[in-house]
């Protein structure tokens, strides 16, 4: 009885190990273009996972998550470009700015629930977009900020490791995303993570149990923004520029679709969703101008036939197999 979860845990660890080894070896197989796609997939996977903390675990569907991604990207981009800050300073500053923005927006947005929460997060992110678009002297307006330098990792003892090459940058992102993902897993399986799931199921019951629901939601909101901001910082270093599109509502919608496509409420789901969408966007568009149509059809199919997302399909299949197995044992 007791050994079964442990076995499954072992299997998961083994899978993770294989995945990481595979990712480590990737630069030896892929050309720089596909390596770039892999970097983009990892960054958007983290972005989608951060939103899943809100959507999947705390049950708060936000349509303004790109605001934190973009605010962090602008902060890091500006500090690196204008003040020449190195990655050790510019990156945490970006993440901090995302957290502060989320704390401010959270005070307003968390007074609402459901579709009202969706609308107020949308409105707030449009405010951030408006500032990026309109404050031309600081943000460059709709032309954005080109020429953000790729960082060099200045380590103690005068060691410096340039991340200008795509392979070096790939490993940098791989390490960053792995650490962030482990932190997210830790959060999700902590008592805090279970409290969030409780809030998702029934806020009233959690209140009755003595939980300060508002405070849990607030912390989740800020934490989600921190991880989104981290993804945004990595993205600005990858693309080497920022534009208001980074915090546009279309990007918020895109990441929400990644979460839903992959399967909300699991961490692996949004990562799969992000990978699928980045791949579709980049591979299909090489063959047809009508790639948006194909993407739309995929969304419709997932909404109709896999309402719990791609990972949800797999989980349901496994659950049904276990059920059948149990039935057979009983008979």
């Amino acid at each position: 009885m007791n050994t079964e979860p442990r076995q499954r845990n072992n299997a998961a660890c083994g899978l993770a190990a294989i995945l990481i080894l595979g990712m480590l070896a990737l630069p030896y197989f892929l050309s720089s273009y596909y390596l770039g796609l892999a970097i983009e997939m990892m960054i958007f996977a983290l972005f989608a996972m951060s939103l899943d903390l809100l959507v999947g675990y705390a049950g708060m569907a936000s349509l303004g998550h790109a605001a934190y991604f973009g605010v962090a990207a602008y902060t890091t981009g500006l500090l690196a470009l204008r003040l020449g800050w190195n990655v050790w300073l510019a990156l945490p500053a970006g993440v901090l700015m995302a957290a502060l923005t989320a704390a401010l927006f959270g005070l307003l947005a968390l007074r609402t629930r459901g579709s009202y929460f969706l609308m107020i997060t949308l409105a707030l992110s449009q405010v951030a977009w408006g500032i990026a678009f309109g404050w031309r002297t600081l943000t460059g307006g709709d032309d954005g900020l080109p020429d953000v330098p790729r960082p060099a990792l200045n380590l103690p003892l005068h060691l410096s490791w340039s991340l200008a090459g795509s392979t070096a940058f790939y490993y940098f992102v791989l390490v960053a995303i792995t650490v962030a993902t482990l932190l997210l897993i830790r959060i999700v399986i902590s008592p805090f993570g279970f409290a969030l799931r409780g809030i998702r199921e029934s806020e009233a019951r959690m209140l009755a149990l003595g939980y300060n629901v508002w405070r849990y939601k607030f912390v989740a909101f800020v934490l989600a923004a921190v991880f989104a901001g981290f993804a945004g910082c990595l993205y600005v270093y990858y693309n080497r520029f920022v534009s208001p599109d980074y915090l546009h509502v279309a990007r918020s919608a895109e990441v929400l679709l990644m979460v839903i496509l992959g399967g909300a409420g699991t961490l692996i789901g949004p990562a799969v969703g992000a990978a699928v969408i980045v791949l579709l966007q980049n591979l299909i568009s090489a063959y047809t101008e009508r790639w948006l149509l194909i993407l739309g059809i995929v969304y419709v199919f997932v909404a109709l036939f896999a309402p719990n997302g791609l990972v949800g399909v797999f989980l349901e299949y496994r659950a049904s197999r276990i059920k059948r197995h149990v039935k057979r044992l009983n008979s």
């Binding site: 720089s32 534009s243 599109d245 966007q281 568009s285 101008e289």
Partner: peptide, 20 residues
């Protein structure tokens, strides 16, 4: 390629043209 008039998509597509 289609840049969709968006800088980040345009940059990704430029990379595709050059590197792929």
């Amino acid at each position: 390629e289609d840049s969709a008039a968006k800088p980040d998509i345009g940059l990704t597509k430029t990379k595709a043209l050059v590197e792929r």
